[in-house]
Amino acid sequence: MTAPQPVLDVRGLIMDFGGLRALDNINIQVNSGEIVALIGPNGAGKTTFFNCITGLYEPTMGDMIIHTPGKAPVRLNRLKPNVVTENGLARTFQNIRLFQKMTVLENVMVARHCRTKSGIAGAIFRGRKTRREEQEMVEHSYRLLEKVGLDSYVNELAQELPYGAQRRLEIARALATEPILLLLDEPAAGMNPKETHELDQLITRIKEEEGVSILLIEHDMKLVMSISDRIYVLDYGQMIAQGTPREVSENRNVIKAYLGEAFDA
């Protein structure tokens, strides 16, 4: 095995909420071109971990570093969420957070914000530069919608989409920020087996075509086992296991966390 190129490197992450330690000394690495899963029972701290690295929460201790190829590594601690996104981390949300009253295309166009720069004057006078940028934005967004299979919905309002399509729109929107690491928070939640299967293929395709690494939180074990290169398991804020899907599925601690003590007896 050649030396893996890390994209995200999190070391010794601790997150306290008052007296409660939600994350305790977490170390997670995501390498370039990998699909890594973060699993664990409800309340294990998975989403808290996402919120820490995307700047929504400020971790109590620890280092979070993102390595963009060809650029100096950036420490993500204390950066605002939008700056984190600018540095190449994009996420979806567990409970869908689309811009409901905007059209599907506009939802994706909004996410182009940090990669474009026309300002107030540009918007008012609509010079050639602004028009070109706007055109580029529309085309780029449309291509992404094609990729996730939503090109027939461009002018619908986001709130009118069926549930599975809303999930895919969130992925397209996150991709529009041109991330190097895509964070998916339970992308298969509420999907039927057929939709989950399609999502499986979509995630693999996105990894190949867009050249992004993926870190996902998921409860659907079939999906996790089939697409992940590596898996981290959290329980009560502790990292209890890590390794390949096979290693993790045979790990005693993991089985205990999921099925309880009685399994041993």
Binding site: T54, L56, K80, P81, N82, T85, E86, A90, R91, F93, R97, L98, F99, Q100, K101, M102, E106, M109, V110, A111, R112, H113, C114, R115, T116, S118, G119, I120, G122, A123, T130, E133, E134, M137, R173, A174, A176, T177
Partner: peptide, 21 residues
């Protein structure tokens, strides 16, 4: 425009708006 869409996104969902850069 780009700015107008950012305003509407802010109205619709502040957290998602920030997360989108």
């Amino acid at each position: 425009s780009r700015i107008g869409r950012a305003w509407i996104a802010l109205r619709e969902d502040e957290v998602a708006c920030q997360a989108m850069g």
